[in-house]
Nucleic acid binder design. Structure first.
Lengths: 336, 336
DNA sequence: ATCCGAATCTGAATCGATTCAGAGAGGTTT
DNA sequence: AAACCTCTCTGAATCGATTCAGATTCGGAT
């Protein structure tokens, strides 16, 4: 048995219009009516039908968040930041996880479009500009998260990954490391290539003879880090790098784990490791992990705030917000 | 500019009914019509209006998942399992994070009710039976995740936390520990009390003189673990327990971190630590963490499968699915 | 007594997809 | 040729909340 606004109106002895007004502009309704309607709603257990509301009003109080990797604590923190800000505006965040899968990414974007969300936050994997452009033409605002919008068509909130990559490798070089390996992938993820580009800059600017090699991983999980570690360990010892820059903390933790189990190489004595994100588990690692911190909650909060502004103001101009990364030094990169 | 089904019909030279049929029962429409309509849809960039669809048809192809703690990798794994299963049925999972906040829990349940999702998965924090009962009467199926439904009114998928708690403490006792502390909270979370109850059973059954004390935490995060560790470290050394059973891995990681920084007590020589969940970071911890593994993805997959079955069959009978926990022994509980 | 404006309420029209009774075309059986 | 199917299509009615032009009420001003 479904309770509709009509049932509430009958029970309260008013018209449907008045019930709707109680729900949406209570100040324009007499206190007595508000009271009667409220009582009727409670008595009947009425819940607004969001479909009807959206159909007629054309707006929604939810925003969507399409996340690249739901297992990654960094993105969870970003989502948390967005939720905090959303809650303050009486808005709910629904999110969908794409797991670096192009087709799922499309599915979720379409889903949120069908749902006519108020706006969409997205940490994109593939090239989604075409789809996002369509959302825009439909009046659904979009903000890119953790990804700079190269062509400036969309607002974005991110951290400068090139600078972060440079900071990481400069730190390694300053603490006396020479043979540096970048561990990460896949290379169609922008964050990966940016961090690597930063690393390259640092090596080129170095006054000493530091070298950089690249160890590719299939994805950015702990398991991929373990696998990369095993691959490196299969080499003769004299071929080993003396520092590893992991594309994110998950890979770094995997590397750490692989080395700890093997036992021949000690961190940081033989090998330094630095990660990226400074997620909640970096400090609790086998060897506390140096990392490049991203202000994750702040990214989420800011992205949501910009999203709401754009949703309310149709012809606002896209803007790029870039936060600085921050070097966090822990035991894993202590000098020998 | 919004493209409606009417525009598509006009462009394809058919009626709106035919367009709808192409979308929903293509086999009942001539191939020629399917073709014309498909072309028109592509040309116009038409996307179904989900609100109108839901309003009329009353069904939806999304399920909601209300999660207790979005930062916890364990729940992320469960969600991932649910998503995998959902994807196979062409269904999308939208989730909302309550962060152990009663009011947010209510908000999300109501939100999903308003949205008329196909079904709802929930890892509940407070007592939500009343609200869930209402969903049920509205025809929205509900499955509890990570929580046994005591009164059997709802289907549930969980791991036996009492058994898990017992396994953890039996393991500690078998490896020679005597003064055991349970670290966790708050005690209105069912999982916490169950795990503690299991621990009590193990201590009572022990042939030796093992003791159990309780160290309460405000929540179940790494930070709470660090705080609990600090509280314990403030005690005189002879008052220290020789084993810690943390209510989940996050707390355990926090404890490990607090002890490592302090440095006076070595894990596992002076203190053993065991966690619960066996999340992705347990193995990569400062000292690889023993834990009670829950089959997280399987929980998510199973919960979603049951949810869809119940959503399709209105008068199916609620059933409780309980998976066994599994003891995973790592360095943090090695005997002295 | 009449008029005015403000406050409040009413109820029909509306949003867009789905549904289904009924129509039309074309073929087969008797 | 009539009767009967089958296949396919049409278009009006429908879902429930919102909106807004118009109605009603009432205290105060003229």
């Amino acid at each position: 048995m479904v309770v509709s606004i009509r049932d509430v109106a009958t029970r309260a002895g008013v018209s449907v219009g008045t019930v709707s007004n109680v729900l949406n502009r209570p100040h324009e309704v007499s206190v007595e009516s508000v009271d009667r309607v409220t009582k009727a709603i409670d008595a009947l257990g009425y819940v607004r039908n969001d479909a009807a509301r959206k159909l007629r009003a054309g707006v929604s109080t939810t925003v969507g968040f399409v996340v690249l990797d739901g297992q990654n604590p960094f993105y969870n923190e970003v989502v948390r930041g967005a939720e905090d800000e959303a809650a303050r505006h009486g808005i709910a965040v629904l999110y969908g996880n794409t797991d670096e899968d192009l087709s799922r990414e499309k599915v979720y974007i379409d889903l949120f479009e069908e749902q006519q969300v108020r706006g969409l936050l997205i940490a994109p994997y593939g090239d989604v500009t075409a789809r996002l452009q369509r959302l825009k033409s439909r009046g659904i605002a979009t903000v890119l998260v953790d990804r700079f919008s190269g062509d400036g068509r969309f607002s974005s909130v991110s951290v400068d990954s090139v600078v972060g990559g440079r900071m990481a490798v400069e730190h390694l070089i300053e603490t006396g490391r020479r043979r540096i390996a970048f561990v990460g992938g896949p290379f169609d993820i922008r964050q990966v290539t940016d961090r690597l580009a930063g690393a390259r800059v640092a090596v080129e600017n170095a006054t000493n003879t530091a070298t950089l090699e690249v160890v590719a991983t299939a994805a950015m999980t702990v398991d991929d880090g373990v696998a990369a570690g095993a691959k490196l360990l299969a080499r003769p010892m004299h071929d080993w790098p003396d520092a590893l820059f992991a594309a994110n903390d998950l890979i770094a933790l995997g590397l750490l784990q692989a080395l700890a189990i093997d036992g021949r190489l000690i961190v940081p004595e033989d090998v330094a490791i630095i990660g990226f994100d400074d997620n909640a588990f970096a400090a609790a690692a086998a060897v506390p992990l140096s990392s490049i911190r991203q202000p994750s909650r702040m990214i989420g909060r800011t992205a949501l705030r910009i999203l709401l502004e754009e949703a309310d103001d149709a012809d606002s101009i896209a803007r790029q917000t870039v936060f600085p990364p921050e070097l966090v030094i822990r035991a894993s990169t202590h000098p020998r």
